[in-house]
Write a protein that binds this DNA or RNA. Sequence first.
DNA 1: CATGAATGAGGCTTCATTCAT
DNA 2: AATGAATGAAGCCTCATTCAT
Lengths: 180, 180, 180, 180
Amino acid sequence: MRTALELFTTLGYHDTTTALIARKAGIAEGTIYRHFTSKQQLVNELYRAAQRWATKLVQDAAHDRDAGAARAQLTAIAHGLIEGAAHETAVVKLGLLERLDGVLDDESRRTRRDFQVALERVVAEGKAQNAVRAGAVEIWAAVWLATLSHALEKVVAGDWKPPDTGVRLIIDAAWRAISV
Amino acid sequence: MRTALELFTTLGYHDTTTALIARKAGIAEGTIYRHFTSKQQLVNELYRAAQRWATKLVQDAAHDRDAGAARAQLTAIAHGLIEGAAHETAVVKLGLLERLDGVLDDESRRTRRDFQVALERVVAEGKAQNAVRAGAVEIWAAVWLATLSHALEKVVAGDWKPPDTGVRLIIDAAWRAISV
Amino acid sequence: MRTALELFTTLGYHDTTTALIARKAGIAEGTIYRHFTSKQQLVNELYRAAQRWATKLVQDAAHDRDAGAARAQLTAIAHGLIEGAAHETAVVKLGLLERLDGVLDDESRRTRRDFQVALERVVAEGKAQNAVRAGAVEIWAAVWLATLSHALEKVVAGDWKPPDTGVRLIIDAAWRAISV
Amino acid sequence: MRTALELFTTLGYHDTTTALIARKAGIAEGTIYRHFTSKQQLVNELYRAAQRWATKLVQDAAHDRDAGAARAQLTAIAHGLIEGAAHETAVVKLGLLERLDGVLDDESRRTRRDFQVALERVVAEGKAQNAVRAGAVEIWAAVWLATLSHALEKVVAGDWKPPDTGVRLIIDAAWRAISV
DNA sequence: CATGAATGAGGCTTCATTCAT
DNA sequence: AATGAATGAAGCCTCATTCAT
């Protein structure tokens, strides 16, 4: 799975062949099919794990600062994601930056939804605190993440290392985009 | 080309087969190869056209409001892109929202660069006007676009129709993200 | 036809495309089909011309030295072929050195036969003069040509220029192979 | 491999399709590519095997009659090749009679060279014994083989069966062509 | 008579998946 | 449970030939 994750995020879904996964992982090609029914199921499994990781991160950050300012919660989440981009590069790539449209199954889309909902809950709290602008929370959660994504891309590409000025600027920018 | 553009943005590069393009376009498969040397060259040609369209849009908007406020220029650009997302859906999808990493050739990357540079020029003007925050223009140009992209996705998906509240909110958010 | 001849002998039958012939000849691809019903008929036409050239050469050399020694006739033929290999390279290549097995039609095989028969007539004369060894004339004609072919290959490849020692040696060797 | 060898020597390289090889061999087309990277590599592999067979034959014949007369060595080689033409028809066809110019890779050309060198060594010995005529050994080795080839063609075509008068005549002719 | 764009059959190759060992 | 050779559908591309202009 680790090998597959690495390859999917490096070469993309289509250019990652089962033969390559097996060779790099030091197993036989057929062995893959004793654990997953298909290549598609394999990415989905990896994708869901990535989503769960991100969701947990959001929930934990929110819970740790329960009743605190929404901005502080989002900042904590942002740092957590950036940290992940630096040390669990492939996970962040597959879960947040890759485009897997045609390959994801229903369960994966549901897991994705869970992550979005968790993030929206935090934004909703911000709205309750009158810190977030008027407008649907779905929009602001998505906008905040889209803005932050540029920093994630940079970190994932190795252009930026975590305690980078650019990262701080963008976390701040993401907040400005959605705050009153 | 129109058929190919439609399919590439609907199914993605890999799931769009030459046989399918030909069938939908009502031509023979071999005919594709009298106009393009390969499937890859075909996407690249389409991609470059999309980039040129976007670049021109940025340049025109900037030129029309020469010496005007950077914010007004960016707003004009945003509306132009949104308009494009509504009426030339596939062009915007292929040029700004698709992920074509492994398929683009050098010339395409150069054309992409032209677009980024054009956008950065506008942001640089904003900095000169003390309207844009401290930090590299490359970052703010990219952040502005990343933020706006969420609106483009919505419009492209048909969820939002151009004079939509969401669109106005996000254009505003993109500006807030990068302005002082 | 000249262009086609050149290409067939340079690239071989299969690697010579009708598109290439047309381009190099400065005509349209379709024009080929106003003169020949197919690519195959085109090679056959060229092949037959080459055979006729070679047959005429044999007949002329024999006639000029009518009633002379067979060896002198064969030597004259050899020099004629070598001369052809030097100045009409492509003709000799297509007619005597190329392997066109699957492409030749019945008429071409007949024309080929004519050439062989002409050569055998000379060898038969040699036998009548008790200058050629015992054994079927078909064999000795073919053996003589096979031996000479090595010189033709060398000349055709540009390794040897006509008044070359190697050429003389081989013409001599070919005669020795079949003479008493 | 046996099926491919048979087809290549019967239909030629271009008219032998991978689909045909697979069908005749009773395997799937894709299976070919688990053993060879391409159709071209497949012929090259077969070609090299044929060359090695011929080279070994030359070396063995020479070694068995070490210090013996060169003529005897060449006669032994000739009989070996004729024998091969009779019983391993396809091997001789592919290795010595086919024209594979555009398809052979560097290694194959090197293997071909090995065979020629082995044959030249025998001819050189003949020269040292003053049995072979003046002139480069490369020439006489090639001439001897070219002359013999006519017999190989006949045997390969099934026109002659090994202990045939024609064969003996030609082996003799080949020697006469190059001997003093 | 020449043109050259269009055709479509067919070639080579890849690759996710299966199954006997 | 793991293996890895075999599978065969399907993909991209070539090219001799046709035909409307």
